[in-house]
Design a binder for these strands. Structure first.
Lengths: 232, 232
DNA sequence: TTCATGCTTCGATGGTAGCCGAAGCATTGT
DNA sequence: ACAATGCTTCGGCTACCATCGAAGCATGAA
């Protein structure tokens, strides 16, 4: 009775936007925890859990228990290859991701990722830092330059000793779910977000549990002055 | 705002069982008409039309008008390659197509494809004919051998002159939707089905519009005696 | 023209699956 | 032992989409 490979089964796994976001977030080869993947996809942990068990059953991802975390990675390069192929087909027809994950535009623009800024503005900030040589990035690792330290001290009153932490890195690249571009995590990312709040540039949304970050009118201007890309 | 290729969009196209069946039916490179694809997928023409327009919008298939038919083919080898990749992933996880297209098991076992027998039994019959050298198959073309003619005359009272037709070939391979294996079409396929009905081995289901073919108890035995594969 | 065939569009229906709230395990830290 | 964190399971809700009937266009045949 078995006929051929059930290509619809595996294709439908990739066909769901939330799962597709998780998979593309895993395309860099690194393993991510279930809750990180939930953040990337913009869904709650329980929904992500359901998706991940389906992906696991379909053989697309593999779990790895570590303490109370569950790390997931793509099973192998074959999976990555097929995903690349699908991306190629999608790219040439001009179908780009416009509205992946959360529907809320505010959530896509600026939100909290753990304790740092994510969303369009988060990506834009790291882009700006990188372009002006304030940080140097190599894959996942980000390093603060001397100019970067001066910049932070001058404009935001952030000194290097505020950033040292026994276990946590100062800078770290964190994949933004809205695409495969990074935003800034680590103690610096957290310190920046905290400073934005202190300066009343931005504040987390009042509704409990919301990850949206609302920028004030002046905060948006100041932010654009420091990290703007000219087009906005 | 555009981010990356929308892999979920194209994957969800392949993710629907009906569309996946159409695509696999097109994997041999030949172009098929819309109604043929509907038959392969086990759906009505209007549903197939909807699916095909989506596949076309997604750039997976290309239409070609010819008379009052619309032939569809895969856009290029890239599409076929991705489909192969998906099939590979599905195959190694052991997920095979068990219940593609129509839910009705009877429809999968034996049904009418135009005027000839399709379904598991149709595929099985052609397999048997080929294995016993009663026909010779090369790709899409099937040829009746001398032994084949004797076999038909002796067991089913079908003579070669009954099969000649000005435009229609005697034998023709027709892809069975349940997988990429062929069943027998052409005037011989039609003559066989007609003979099965005359001998009261099988009859089309009474409910109007149904394509199910019901075999009688004795008919099933006789059929198995002529075309059985030993395992059934 | 008139009819038949192949395909498409429209409208309505139903089944499926994604989603989240609440609660339940498991593991780690204090 | 107790609390906190990470993840899972369960139940209900909602939205989407595949499906088909009926009708509307085309094209080709008589």
């Amino acid at each position: 009775m078995k006929s051929g490979p059930d290509i619809a089964m595996v294709a439908s796994l990739v066909g769901d936007p939330a799962r597709a976001n998780m998979l593309t977030a895993l395309m860099n080869g690194r393993a991510l925890t279930a809750s990180e993947l939930a953040q990337e996809a913009g869904i709650t942990p329980q929904t992500a859990s359901s998706h991940l068990s389906k992906l696991e059953a379909g053989g697309l991802v593999e779990p790895e228990k570590q303490g109370r975390h569950r790390y997931y990675r793509l099973t192998d390069d074959d999976v990555a290859g097929v995903l690349e192929g699908l991306a190629g087909l999608a790219a040439r027809t001009g179908h780009m991701r416009v509205r992946t994950g959360p529907k809320d535009p505010a959530l896509r623009r600026a939100r909290i990722c753990y304790d740092h800024l994510a969303g369009d503005l988060g990506v834009q900030m790291l882009d700006s830092l990188r372009q002006r040589q304030l940080v140097r990035q190599r894959k996942q690792d980000i390093e603060l330059t001397a100019e970067g330290e001066r910049f932070l001290a001058k404009h935001l009153q952030i000194s290097p000793d505020m950033l040292s932490h026994p276990r946590r890195p100062v800078c770290k690249a964190c994949l933004d779910w809205s695409e495969r571009r990074h935003h800034l995590a680590g103690t610096l990312g957290a310190a920046l977000m905290q400073r934005f709040a202190e300066l009343k540039w931005a504040a987390r949304d009042a509704t409990p549990g919301s990850r949206v970050v609302n920028f004030t009118r002046t905060g948006e201007k100041q932010f654009a002055a420091l990290f703007g890309s000219g087009q906005d």
